[in-house]
Design a protein around this nucleic acid. Structure first.
Lengths: 260, 260
DNA sequence: GAGTGGATTTCGCAT
DNA sequence: ATGCGAAGTCCACTC
């Protein structure tokens, strides 16, 4: 039946010949393919690796991305980014799947000696994905509602370039002190403090104005509080929940772009 | 049959009740679980995300890691690291899989309205994984064969602690100049130059000896060459292929450990 | 448990 | 293309 080609295929314990045919069919039709079984994996490219035989889950996606997953751990042990070219062969009692890509040249070769489950399916996925309160969105929220950071903050610029890097938020407070703020959406650590310190030092050396260095984050790592004080910087805790209410959309982002 | 419990299970188009039972069974037995079907995903924790309905592949590993993969792209759209606690429910005509973890508190909720394929299997994977020519192995290769870096290098120490961090390779050349080398297995960028500069500055300030700062990498980023010259540092291109021939095994690593 | 640094990081954005 | 910084980074290792 022709319609079956579009239906998901799930085969338990196929022999290698059947797995080979199903794999070639799935790859040529750009369907997603899942192979579960005993395999050996070699990678050569930016680095080199060998994964000795064992049971893994191999996922080949519609765009040619490949993932080899062991039974544990969140990350694939081997992978290949999308856009691979495939070669499937049956040789010496093994199903060999080779995924090669250019730029950089790298190849992933998977030898299956046994396939326990094979799944092939054309997936339809048009659902939108939205991630909220990213660092960028936090920045936008603060720029559109500066009181989230300081009640009397007037932003002048954002991502202002200074020698060590970019100042997240740059502005003035009601006492005409320059405000140099570093925003972190997660707990601020030593690195954030040092980053801020470099910005503040640079700004202070370039103006006679008083400069406030502000580290704004949900919380601060233990022990870094003292470092902040030593460097004459301030920590301001921010409420991500509250900031989330002021996240600005793409269109509204343009409203603060003139600050740049 | 009891033996079947250990065999991989692959079910096509199960109704939600069957999928629910199989999912609970797989999770309680800590088997790997693959669900392919139409789902909606919500994440809340360090950030927040919503993934509207569509067909995806959900992978739950034996250690409680969760991956939600769309039909394309190498990375999961949503995930949860290992060590999650699960709750599976059937509610309002949907199979709901909730994965929660502490520290940080975050939850991933997957609502399946349709399961097209379910696979559950206990995977046995004892195969070793070895990645060659890692930064560590490059370091070991250079320590065991210093001429890979300089024809006249005599290593004194490695990972030598100085204030800014650890010096990859520390030694002397035939003219009794101190050598401070920073190794990179990929193209060296500005960061590597600055890192090396800090080490060299520190060493120079602590000795009257002449100090050579050497950045060793397959190649160097455009524009950083000049920075190197300005800072009085050297760039030495290294051949990873050649280094690979001198990669030392775990046992041999002990041979250079006295340098530490 | 938290802190540090590497990664076949990947990804996105600006140059 | 390249460079630079962020990431729900993840991950391993140290303290």
């Amino acid at each position: 039946m022709k319609a079956d080609i579009q239906e998901p295929v799930a085969i338990s314990n196929p022999d290698l010949e059947a797995a080979y045919q199903a794999t070639k069919s799935a790859l040529s039709q750009r369907r997603c393919l899942i192979l579960l079984g005993d395999c050996r994996v070699e990678y050569q490219g930016r680095a080199r690796s060998v994964l000795e035989p064992g049971e893994r889950i191999v996922l080949v996606k519609a765009d040619g991305a490949v993932l080899v997953h062991r039974p544990t751990g969140g990350e694939p042990v081997n992978w290949q980014p999308s856009g691979c070219v495939f070669r499937t062969t049956l040789s010496e009692g093994a199903l060999v799947l080779e995924a090669v890509r250019r730029s950089p040249v790298e190849s992933l070769v998977i030898h299956f000696t046994e396939v326990r489950v094979l799944v092939a399916a054309k997936l339809v996925d048009a659902g939108s994905f939205s991630l909220h309160v990213s660092e960028k969105e936090l920045q936008m929220a603060v720029l559109s509602e500066p009181r989230l950071l300081l009640p009397d903050l007037k932003p002048i610029a954002y991502e202002k370039k200074v020698e060590p890097g970019f100042i997240d938020v740059y502005g003035l407070d009601s006492k005409n002190r320059l405000v140099v703020a570093e925003l972190k959406r997660v707990r601020a650590g030593k690195a954030a403090v040092l980053q801020l310190a470099r910005y503040v030092e640079e700004v202070r050396s370039s103006t006679p104005m008083e400069v406030r260095g502000i580290l704004a984050a949900p919380k601060i790592a233990r022990g870094t509080q003292r470092m902040l004080a030593t460097l004459g910087l301030e920590f301001i805790p921010i409420d991500l929940e509250k900031c989330a209410r002021f996240i600005v959309s793409g269109r509204d982002k343009k409203m603060v772009e003139f600050l740049k």
